[in-house]
Amino acid sequence: MRSKTPAYPYIVWMAIFIIIPVILVFYYAFTKTESGGMVFTLENFARAFEPIYLGVMWRSIRLAFFCTVICLVLGYPVAYIVAQRKTGTRDIILFLIIVPMWMNFLLRTYAWLTILEQNGIINSVLASAGLPKLNLLYNEGAVILGMVYNFLPFMILPIHTILKKTDLSLVEAAQDLGANGINVFLRVVFPLSVPGVISGITMVFMPAVTAFIISNLLGGKQVVLIGNLIEDQFLNVYNWHFGSALSVILMIIIVITIGIFSVAERDEGGAVL
């Protein structure tokens, strides 16, 4: 049991399938193909900062931000209400929240297609009421809706885990000391749950900012995100250099996000102690 040998096959595997691919992405990001050879260049990154692509990046971050805020606003009360319930009911409700996550991600997204489309349920209802049909699909709203639908449980679960551990008799203690409902929440409950909120935000923001299926299915050609750009570069335009540069940028965004939130979490931990 003190032998390191069993790890060696995987170390080789890691080198081939994890490290080399990442190196290749960086390699392509910093080169261009010129008269049959590869030449070092920063052109790919310069291009990524042209207004049209900056706009795409900005949209990715903006939509992910809106999605995160909505998930927080919708999810926090759910986590709070569930944490107050008795263990039995609590487990059932949590189970109900988790079950849809077991469905394939594509199917969950596709489901909204059937609700929002031109001949979908909402428009049929509107039509039968004699109202004009709405264009519900292929806009940013639809993409945000799809994101919120898919990622809401990622916000609820970590917050709930923290609130469950929190002694809710603190709430009673605070009420006993004369604090009203909102005061109790702002001064006692919310500060205690911040670590859960932080991990919830991380868990929603990261998949949202890298999403490309949701935007493909519900946003169509109207809502292009970084993910869609990358897909396009690799599968349609065949410009691996630009695609790799975009991938590097996406990795940087993720690293920054993780960085910010792990610092926030550490500060929070320090404050609690």
């Binding site: 399938f17 691919p21 992405v25 998949p207 490309f212 990358i230 695609g243 790799s244």
Partner: peptide
């Protein structure tokens, strides 16, 4: 070090893992 590298596919966006493997294979 090993666990750090091991975490890369977990933390990296799937799309980046996907394209990086595709580059590797075609390469």
């Amino acid at each position: 070090v090993i666990l750090g590298i091991n975490n890369l596919p977990v933390l990296n966006p799937d799309i980046v893992t996907g394209v990086s493997l595709m580059i590797l294979f075609i390469f």
